[in-house]
Design a protein around this nucleic acid. Structure first.
Length: 728
DNA sequence: ACTGATCAGTTGTAT
DNA sequence: ACAACTGATCAGTGA
């Protein structure tokens, strides 16, 4: 199926479909950039075609662009080591005799209009009118490269000069000013005491801006800043969503917290990599996942908020030409995207959004840039949309690394209009990304089986979903014996100080219901978004419980719904057994609770079982809150008694989560309404979006007692901010 | 529960 | 001003 689809799209390949061939017109043919597709691609590339014959169906290239490319060097001339991810990380294309300036501030491709861009100039001090065609004042400068290819621009001054010739600061930390005032119904939130007003929202952004600049004001883009940025974005988005949920929905007024949060961030300059560039984006890793187009924009991966092709003007010898820098393939057009290393991408246009008239695609904008990039063989970042039924949009964006355009052509679509097609081939040596998704799809469908599976379900049916036990690194057959339980067991009931009778929300607790005692305990608002994401970390989160009359699917029972992701317990290389997920996990999602037996801290002292018990959760330790917006009350976990859980003999998946000094999972104490008994649980939520097969880790916290040294272990988390040790 | 249609909304680029 | 592979919502269909 895949095969025939692929061949259908390739002129000159094996199968011969007359009706198709008649419709296929080669845009041009040239010596393939790659002698053969890497990694055994199922695609065959036409070999030995006429070199550099340019035959566009729509006539000569506009703008005097030359179809011949003197900078193009043949593949054999390229240094072999550049065919690696290290080369891919250099950030620039090879095959050019001259290094090209490949970082340009977004919003500065062309001469700005005096209206909007002029305003931006005024506010930001960025003179960005000179990077367009005919520019002669741009100063190119080779960037210092670190070992992993990230540019070291800690003290980077502007690469650009102002229109008057004076040098201007361009940190990219200040975005363009607000254009139009947002169309919002103001005052709509006044009904409830704790509804954040628009002014409150603005204040939060200001604090995020300050916090972001304090932490990363000197960096243009690195892993830590990108992680912080994406984490803050979704935290803020969830906060805006919560505020919207509390307001009465206004029919017709679309609720787009993703856009609102994104716009506010961009306007405040809360973004990474504001310079457009070819190749790798500092701080963004192959395999990173995103849930909104705005996120791609914020981290500097792909600037347009909707368009699938991002491009920039590159001047090499006199003529400036547009080159593609990144594309998003997410199902809007008929792309062929089954092969993990090859992507047949459709050009843009041909569809009128208003009247839905169809027409031939034109060789302009993104299509022209892709065409130029085909000749120039520059790296193009590829973001693939993958199907995901858990999201409302139905897809997740996966950054799949650098590709190069191998060839291009036009073909007639079913509707008779001509469409541009571009064949992109993945650069070898990059970490797996989309390929992992394809593998998991096959594991789940049973088409292929996961290598190294010891047990398909170590919970023996205790959980709703199976948890695989996998070892693909050595011979160990599994962790020491334990009993799987999904329950937290209180051996000695601890009397609660505050008895509660729960709520009577028969249809489930609704955000905005000021009569619900459970919501009141959470300062008046539902602590989760409507789709079950935690809004922010709290000292104690109050869920509905046994004494509540709301149904099990109540929005305030998120941590009681069991596993929602297919997890696997796997053998790590150097840290024993660990936990990871086959499914993507979005920021704020509930992962699991910590099951086991509640033990009293005094008990472990007396019996001395603490030091050899690797499977405890100790809520009395100190740790940094991770899911809190700057400026919000930053309270430590507040549990009415010193809670310690042992999962040595009985526990769930949580016992396998390792420590990290920069974790992707946070823990949160949950109180469930249960009359006179304390029903405190520990629940884990994703700090940020977690790609499939990424190890799940949380911060074990700091012990301040005297006996701390007994539990001190060398930390192997590998984070750049590693403390060097952790407490077992 | 899915699917398609509809529509407000955003960005960078082009005129 | 405009194009653009958004994303939320709502009506309709279906088990």
């Amino acid at each position: 199926m895949e095969h025939s689809l692929g061949e259908d799209s390739i002129p000159g390949s094996g199968s011969f479909d007359k009706s198709r061939v008649l419709n296929v017109k080669p845009l041009r043919s040239l010596v393939p950039v790659f002698p053969s597709a890497p990694n055994g691609s199922s695609f065959s590339t036409p070999q030995g075609g006429a070199p550099f014959v340019c035959a566009t169906p729509s006539g000569p290239f506009p703008n005097g662009a030359c179809p011949f490319f003197p900078f193009f060097t043949s593949d054999s001339q390229r240094p072999p080591e550049q065919n690696t991810s290290a080369a891919a990380n250099q950030g620039g294309p090879f095959g050019f005799s001259n290094p090209i300036s490949n970082a340009v501030p977004i919003n500065s491709f062309r001469t700005p209009t005096p209206t909007r861009a002029g305003r931006a100039q005024q506010h930001t001090g960025v003179a960005n009118g000179d990077t367009g065609s005919g520019s002669s004042r741009r100063v190119t400068r080779s960037r210092a490269q670190t070992e992993d290819g990230y540019s070291e621009n800690q003290n980077q001054v502007s690469e650009y000069y102002g229109t008057d010739g004076t040098e201007v600061e361009e940190r990219g930390k200040v975005g363009r000013p607000k254009r139009k005032a947002q169309k919002r119904i103001s005052g709509g939130g006044g009904k409830h005491a704790n509804v954040p007003s628009d002014a409150d929202i603005d204040m939060v952004v200001d604090k995020i801006q300050t916090s972001f600049n304090d932490k990363f004001g000197q960096t243009e883009g690195d892993r830590a800043s990108v992680e912080y940025l994406t984490m803050m974005y979704d935290l803020f988005r969830r906060r805006v969503l919560q505020a919207d949920d509390l307001k009465d929905a206004v029919p017709g007024l679309s609720r787009r917290p993703d856009l609102r949060a994104g716009t506010l961030f961009l306007n405040k300059g809360i973004r990474a990599n504001s310079k457009k560039r070819i190749g790798t984006v500092p701080g963004v890793e192959v395999g990173d996942i995103f849930f909104f187009r705005m996120e791609l924009c914020l981290v500097g991966l792909h600037a347009p908020s909707m368009a699938g092709i991002d491009y920039m003007g590159i001047k090499n010898t006199g003529e400036e030409e547009p080159l593609a820098v990144s594309i998003v393939s997410s199902g809007g057009y008929e792309d062929y995207a089954e092969d993990p290393d090859v992507l047949i991408y459709s050009g843009q246009g041909g569809v009128n959004r208003r009247d839905k008239e169809l027409s031939d695609q034109k060789l302009e904008r993104g299509n022209l840039a892709l065409e130029k990039s085909t000749h120039r063989a520059n790296d193009v970042r590829v973001i693939r949309g993958v199907k995901d039924l858990s999201t409302v949009s139905g897809k997740i964006y996966v950054y799949d690394g650098l590709y190069r355009i191998n060839e291009s052509w036009t073909e007639k679509a079913k509707n008779g209009c001509s469409v541009f097609k571009y064949k992109l081939v993945r650069m070898p040596g990059q970490p797996e990304a989309f390929r992992i998704w394809k593998s998991i799809e096959q594991w789940k469908g049973g088409a292929t089986s996961r290598v190294g599976v010891i047990l398909p379900d170590l919970t023996s049916g205790e959980e709703k979903l199976p948890v695989s036990l996998v070892n693909d690194v050595d011979d160990e057959k599994g962790p020491a014996h334990f009993t799987y339980t999904s329950i937290l067991k209180y051996s000695n009931p601890i009397n609660s100080t505050v008895p509660s009778s729960g709520c009577v929300c028969i249809g489930g607790c609704l955000s905005g219901n000021s009569n619900c005692p459970c919501l009141e305990k959470n300062k008046g608002s539902l602590p989760y978004t409507a789709n079950g994401l935690i809004v922010s970390q709290k000292s104690l989160l109050h869920e509905c419980g046994a004494s509540c009359q709301c149904p099990p699917n109540c929005k305030n029972r998120v941590s009681q719904s069991g596993l929602k992701f297919h997890l696997e317990v796997f053998k790590t290389k150097d840290r024993g057994w660990g936990l990871r997920s086959w499914d993507p996990i979005r920021a704020g999602a509930f992962i699991c609770e910590y099951a086991g037996e509640v033990i009293s801290p005094s008990k472990i002292d007396k019996f001395g079982v603490d030091t050899d018990d690797d499977y405890t959760f100790d809520a009395t330790r100190n740790s940094q809150p991770l899911g809190v917006l700057p400026g919000e009350p930053d309270e430590a976990p507040k549990i009415p008694f010193p809670l310690v859980i042992s999962a040595k003999y009985a526990g769930n998946v949580a016992r396998f989560m390792n420590h990290s000094c920069s974790p992707n999972v946070l823990w949160q104490p949950i109180s469930r309404e249960n009359k006179n008994e304390s029903d405190i649980h520990i629940a884990f939520y994703a700090v940020r979006h977690i790609p499939p097969m990424t190890e799940l880790t949380y911060d074990y916290g700091i012990i301040s007692q005297d006996d701390a040294d007994q539990r001190k272990k060398k930390c192997l988390c590998g984070s750049s901010r590693c403390r060097g040790f952790f407490y077992q």
